[in-house]
Design a binder for these strands. Sequence first.
DNA 1: GACCTGCTGCGGAATG
Length: 716
Amino acid sequence: MSDGGVPRRSSGFDRLSERIRRWAWRQGWEGLRDVQERAIEPILAGRDVVLASATASGKTEAAFLPLLSRPADERGLRVLTLSPLKALINDQCRRLEPLGDTLGIPVTPWHGDVPQARKRTLRVRPAGILLITPESIEAMLATRGSGAAAFFGSLDYVVVDELHSFIATERGRQLQSLLHRLEMVIGRPVPRVGLSATLGDLGQAARFLRPDGLLPDIVESTVARRDVKLQVRGYCGDGDGANDHLYGVVARGTHIIFANQRAEVEVRVQELKRRAEGDGRSGDAFWAHHGSLAKELREDAETALRDARDTTVVATTTLELGIDVGSVDTIAQLGAPPSVSSMRQRLGRSGRREGDSSVLRIYAEELPLTARTPPQDQLRETVVQSAAMVQLLVEGYNETPRRGALHLSTLVQQVLSLVAQRGGIRADDGWRALCATGPFREVTPALFTSLLRDLADHDLLSQMHDGTIVLGLEGERVVNHYDFYTAFVTSDEYRLVAGTQTIGTLPVTRPIAIGDLMLFAGRRWRVTDVRGRERIIELVPAPGGKAPAFGGAGAAVDDAVRAQMRKLYESDGLPTFVDGGAQELLAEGRRSFRRLELAEQPVLAWGDTVVAFPWIGDRALNTLALMLASRGLRAAPDGVAVLVQDAAVGEVVDALRALAQAPPEASTLTEKVQNKQLEKHHWRLGPELLAADYASSRLDIAGAVRAAANLLPVGG
DNA sequence: GACCTGCTGCGGAATG
């Protein structure tokens, strides 16, 4: 904790309690780091504050040294920490326990894997620091609502760990609602500390932490950025070029290779192992890491990365989170990164040691062009998108999560939970608690009333003669099942069993037959049995295999990324961070862009299809396609473009002009969407609310209308 | 749309 500390006399340090200062001296600390120093004043003053700095920079201590220096009652809970991961709760517990022991402050972890007995002990005598998941808080409020005031009554501060991971998600909205409900139970505001990675818009993180009232203080690390080495490598052909280079890079040292899909992880691990074994070396240096792998196998990979000299882990976003794997030598990214923020997090996994650089290589693979390649595929999208994202990263850009979503699925959960907590509510009290003073600000009384009606239609709620709303029969059943406490859904998963060992789980996206081959955990397998009732797939090792079908396309690309791509097409300079292969592909993409005259005429004919290039993010792109479809055209997004089949350019331009002049209503657009049920409780909403929720979270009508106007010929 | 994340209370059997 002390390595790299700032060895200087600090004024903040003297304001910490004497016992904390003595503890810090005993740890051999030479001084406080920048964020630790600046966190002291606002926390001692009891203000809301967002602490932003890189992983492993001592944020936890920055919060807890001043938190535990505050005068407090011996009895009762002092600090409540909410964390997104069980593994992080266990980590934090280990880090805080020595300090807690010194000060006589108990530290208690609370999540699904913590034994009941330990929870019971704390329930009888609440004290000290509690580290807990949002789901466990939900369970406490829904099932023991009447005891919540006594349990949480003495809280001095709330901490939210990994704040950035909650912003603009269903789980994040649930978290905000829980924090608000806690304050209502306690009967006073409790100051909040958010621990965050460095983000583009910390103001938004601060607003998220405290949606009403004064904006929290923001304490951002000013420690100089590490030296960063970024490269986009371009390949065209069978993919061997990229494999050869990658294999050369990871032959020695420690590396993380990020893939955008779990199936891709498995394929790459397999290839690397095969090559190593072909060279007479062991394939044991290569590991897979993704969400379908059993926890034990993931932990083996993490341990290997921390401890072994030559280790490479191929991973999905599972290694992007706060799990401690030390610092690796280099990072590889296969294909364009899912987002600029995600690339920044991935980059930060390397070069953590003093004097090291962070190194990230993006491997962008493209297919050879033929005379039949359609325009949207002639632009070398992967290379250009990767280069655009690197430019944005260097400029310090991060995607801003979308605002204005209604989060009605999570509102359903919160209504049911609040009714369970209080035993019954009046409709206007419910609206005031969750919407007027709570986080569902966009929900009007009328909308709230429709939602209550939809829930009553499903027997989730019922109204007594005096107007009190209570749980219906179905509502009792739903709330009393443990599945209720999460705000998100998970698809049915099968357990993969080899002999006596469970090696992971697989989402059931398509039928799996006996005899099927698959790659999993970096090895080849054959399916010997599928036991539907028990949801078990039995496997034996097999000589050949293909990757299991996880399916899917990719993450939504941001407006700024597409705008930056257009700039790259329209300029001539070669960025210094692209290699020879990527230079050629970029030049080829630019030639196509000019030959197709996309700068002058972004709507063109390709056979009997019209292709439009608006250079906007996926949300607006999808909305634009829906708008064209609402005018009777066969339109659909395809990569960076919108395709309109069986149409002429004039027809499409006419439609765009009409759309720019008179934008259609959201309800007209959502009518065209077949599957709007995307979140957990969506199926419990009536068609109107479902459409409203879809529009609020998935459509960008303003962006699509702007794009329609920009696609029109000049003077048209 | 890629990728992630999380979970209570009780009954019954086995053990000391």
